[in-house]
Protein backbone atom coordinates (compact mmCIF):
# COMPACT_ATOMS: atom_id res chain seq x y z
CA UNK A 1 0.00 0.00 0.00
CA UNK A 2 1.46 3.31 -1.01
CA UNK A 3 1.47 5.86 1.70
CA UNK A 4 1.84 9.52 1.02
CA UNK A 5 4.38 11.44 2.97
CA UNK A 6 1.85 13.96 4.21
CA UNK A 7 0.96 13.44 7.81
CA UNK A 8 -2.22 14.73 9.30
CA UNK A 9 -3.55 14.86 12.78
CA UNK A 10 -7.19 13.86 12.86
CA UNK A 11 -8.23 17.50 13.20
CA UNK A 12 -6.10 18.64 10.29
CA UNK A 13 -7.34 15.75 8.20
CA UNK A 14 -10.97 16.61 8.80
CA UNK A 15 -10.38 20.25 7.89
CA UNK A 16 -8.53 19.26 4.72
CA UNK A 17 -11.21 16.72 3.77
CA UNK A 18 -13.93 19.25 4.24
CA UNK A 19 -11.95 21.55 1.96
CA UNK A 20 -12.01 18.79 -0.65
CA UNK A 21 -8.23 18.47 -0.86
CA UNK A 22 -7.07 15.58 -2.94
CA UNK A 23 -4.04 14.86 -0.75
CA UNK A 24 -6.32 14.49 2.26
CA UNK A 25 -8.52 11.97 0.49
CA UNK A 26 -5.48 10.06 -0.69
CA UNK A 27 -4.25 9.97 2.86
CA UNK A 28 -7.64 8.76 4.03
CA UNK A 29 -7.64 6.03 1.41
CA UNK A 30 -4.09 4.92 2.07
CA UNK A 31 -4.66 4.91 5.78
CA UNK A 32 -8.08 3.32 6.10
CA UNK A 33 -9.00 1.41 2.93
CA UNK A 34 -7.33 -1.77 4.22
CA UNK A 35 -9.33 -1.75 7.42
CA UNK A 36 -12.56 -0.87 5.63
CA UNK A 37 -12.00 -3.52 2.97
CA UNK A 38 -11.37 -6.09 5.67
CA UNK A 39 -14.66 -5.18 7.32
CA UNK A 40 -16.63 -5.25 4.07
CA UNK A 41 -15.11 -8.62 3.16
CA UNK A 42 -16.23 -10.02 6.48
CA UNK A 43 -19.83 -9.31 5.54
CA UNK A 44 -19.70 -10.01 1.80
CA UNK A 45 -16.88 -12.51 1.41
CA UNK A 46 -16.98 -11.99 -2.37
CA UNK A 47 -13.89 -9.83 -2.97
CA UNK A 48 -15.16 -8.38 -6.21
CA UNK A 49 -18.43 -7.23 -4.66
CA UNK A 50 -16.48 -6.02 -1.65
CA UNK A 51 -14.27 -3.89 -3.89
CA UNK A 52 -17.38 -2.34 -5.44
CA UNK A 53 -18.80 -1.59 -2.02
CA UNK A 54 -15.51 -0.06 -0.87
CA UNK A 55 -15.53 2.18 -3.91
CA UNK A 56 -19.16 3.19 -3.37
CA UNK A 57 -18.51 3.83 0.31
CA UNK A 58 -15.51 5.98 -0.41
CA UNK A 59 -17.46 8.06 -2.92
CA UNK A 60 -20.17 8.45 -0.32
CA UNK A 61 -17.60 9.61 2.21
CA UNK A 62 -16.25 12.11 -0.31
CA UNK A 63 -19.70 13.43 -1.17
CA UNK A 64 -20.97 13.64 2.39
CA UNK A 65 -17.91 14.77 4.27
CA UNK A 66 -19.59 18.10 4.94
CA UNK A 67 -22.18 16.35 7.09
CA UNK A 68 -19.57 14.70 9.32
CA UNK A 69 -19.62 16.32 12.74
CA UNK A 70 -16.45 15.75 14.80
CA UNK A 71 -18.42 16.61 17.93
CA UNK A 72 -20.35 13.38 17.59
CA UNK A 73 -17.48 11.00 17.22
CA UNK A 74 -14.22 10.13 15.57
CA UNK A 75 -13.80 10.21 11.82
CA UNK A 76 -13.10 6.50 11.62
CA UNK A 77 -16.32 5.63 13.43
CA UNK A 78 -18.17 7.66 10.83
CA UNK A 79 -16.51 6.16 7.77
CA UNK A 80 -16.71 2.67 9.23
CA UNK A 81 -20.46 3.11 9.61
CA UNK A 82 -20.75 4.08 5.96
CA UNK A 83 -18.72 1.09 4.81
CA UNK A 84 -20.48 -1.32 7.14
CA UNK A 85 -23.94 -0.16 6.10
CA UNK A 86 -22.89 -0.37 2.46
CA UNK A 87 -21.82 -3.97 2.97
CA UNK A 88 -25.01 -4.89 4.84
CA UNK A 89 -27.14 -3.28 2.13
CA UNK A 90 -25.24 -5.10 -0.60
CA UNK A 91 -25.70 -8.40 1.21
CA UNK A 92 -29.40 -7.68 1.52
CA UNK A 93 -29.73 -6.80 -2.17
CA UNK A 94 -28.32 -10.19 -2.99
CA UNK A 95 -31.15 -11.56 -0.96
CA UNK A 96 -29.22 -13.24 1.78
CA UNK A 97 -28.24 -12.57 5.30
CA UNK A 98 -24.77 -11.23 5.86
CA UNK A 99 -22.37 -14.13 6.02
CA UNK A 100 -22.23 -15.87 9.32
CA UNK A 101 -19.73 -18.61 9.87
CA UNK A 102 -19.83 -21.06 12.66
CA UNK A 103 -17.50 -20.39 15.46
CA UNK A 104 -14.75 -22.79 14.41
CA UNK A 105 -14.57 -21.27 10.98
CA UNK A 106 -14.52 -17.87 12.59
CA UNK A 107 -11.73 -18.70 14.93
CA UNK A 108 -9.68 -20.12 12.09
CA UNK A 109 -10.21 -16.91 10.17
CA UNK A 110 -9.20 -14.81 13.07
CA UNK A 111 -6.05 -16.82 13.39
CA UNK A 112 -5.37 -16.22 9.75
CA UNK A 113 -5.80 -12.51 10.29
CA UNK A 114 -3.48 -12.71 13.18
CA UNK A 115 -0.79 -14.65 11.39
CA UNK A 116 -0.92 -12.19 8.53
CA UNK A 117 -0.27 -9.46 10.99
CA UNK A 118 2.59 -11.23 12.66
CA UNK A 119 4.78 -10.79 9.64
CA UNK A 120 4.46 -7.09 9.61
CA UNK A 121 4.12 -6.00 13.18
CA UNK A 122 6.59 -5.85 15.96
CA UNK A 123 6.57 -8.38 18.75
CA UNK A 124 4.98 -5.73 20.89
CA UNK A 125 2.01 -5.81 18.57
CA UNK A 126 1.68 -9.58 18.76
CA UNK A 127 0.39 -9.38 22.26
CA UNK A 128 -2.14 -6.79 21.25
CA UNK A 129 -3.48 -8.88 18.44
CA UNK A 130 -3.55 -11.94 20.59
CA UNK A 131 -4.88 -10.28 23.64
CA UNK A 132 -8.55 -10.88 22.91
CA UNK A 133 -9.70 -14.35 23.67
CA UNK A 134 -11.25 -15.84 20.52
CA UNK A 135 -14.73 -16.02 21.95
CA UNK A 136 -14.59 -12.31 22.72
CA UNK A 137 -12.97 -11.38 19.46
CA UNK A 138 -15.82 -12.98 17.52
CA UNK A 139 -18.29 -10.85 19.38
CA UNK A 140 -16.38 -7.66 18.69
CA UNK A 141 -16.00 -8.57 15.05
CA UNK A 142 -19.67 -9.34 14.66
CA UNK A 143 -20.88 -6.29 16.49
CA UNK A 144 -18.31 -3.78 15.34
CA UNK A 145 -17.29 -4.99 11.92
CA UNK A 146 -20.55 -6.49 10.75
CA UNK A 147 -23.11 -4.43 12.60
CA UNK A 148 -24.88 -7.28 14.38
CA UNK A 149 -27.05 -6.25 17.29
CA UNK A 150 -26.42 -7.96 20.59
CA UNK A 151 -29.71 -9.81 20.19
CA UNK A 152 -28.72 -11.11 16.78
CA UNK A 153 -25.37 -12.29 18.08
CA UNK A 154 -27.08 -14.04 20.97
CA UNK A 155 -29.43 -15.79 18.57
CA UNK A 156 -26.79 -16.64 16.02
CA UNK A 157 -24.22 -18.00 18.43
CA UNK A 158 -26.75 -19.42 20.87
CA UNK A 159 -25.20 -17.54 23.75
CA UNK A 160 -27.42 -15.86 26.35
CA UNK A 161 -27.90 -12.16 25.71
CA UNK A 162 -26.43 -11.25 29.10
CA UNK A 163 -23.29 -13.20 28.30
CA UNK A 164 -22.97 -11.44 24.94
CA UNK A 165 -23.23 -8.07 26.60
CA UNK A 166 -20.77 -8.82 29.36
CA UNK A 167 -18.23 -10.40 26.99
CA UNK A 168 -18.38 -7.42 24.68
CA UNK A 169 -17.94 -5.10 27.61
CA UNK A 170 -14.94 -7.03 28.88
CA UNK A 171 -13.43 -7.14 25.41
CA UNK A 172 -13.83 -3.40 25.03
CA UNK A 173 -12.30 -2.77 28.44
CA UNK A 174 -9.32 -4.85 27.40
CA UNK A 175 -9.00 -3.01 24.14
CA UNK A 176 -9.12 0.31 25.91
CA UNK A 177 -6.39 -0.75 28.27
CA UNK A 178 -4.18 -1.99 25.48
CA UNK A 179 -4.66 1.06 23.38
CA UNK A 180 -4.69 3.53 26.24
CA UNK A 181 -3.10 6.71 25.02
Amino acid sequence: MATSKVKYSEEELVVALKRNERTAFEFLYDHYSGALFNIICKTLRDEERAADVLQESFLKIWKNIASYNPEKGRLFTWILNIARNGAIDAARVEGRKPIMDDIDDRVALNERDTSEELNTVSSDMKSIVNMLRPERKILIDMAYFQGYTHEEISEELKIPLGTVKSRIRTALQELKQYFAV
Binding site: G34, N38, I39, F76, T77, E117, M125, Y144, F145, K176
Partner: peptide, 12 residues
Protein backbone atom coordinates in the same frame (compact mmCIF):
# COMPACT_ATOMS: atom_id res chain seq x y z
CA UNK B 1 -9.51 1.67 20.92
CA UNK B 2 -11.86 0.07 18.42
CA UNK B 3 -10.33 2.12 15.64
CA UNK B 4 -6.85 0.88 16.47
CA UNK B 5 -8.22 -2.62 16.73
CA UNK B 6 -9.73 -2.24 13.27
CA UNK B 7 -6.48 -0.92 11.89
CA UNK B 8 -4.74 -4.04 13.12
CA UNK B 9 -6.95 -6.04 10.81
CA UNK B 10 -6.34 -4.97 7.28
CA UNK B 11 -7.07 -6.63 3.98
CA UNK B 12 -5.50 -4.66 1.17
Amino acid sequence: ALEQYALKHQTP
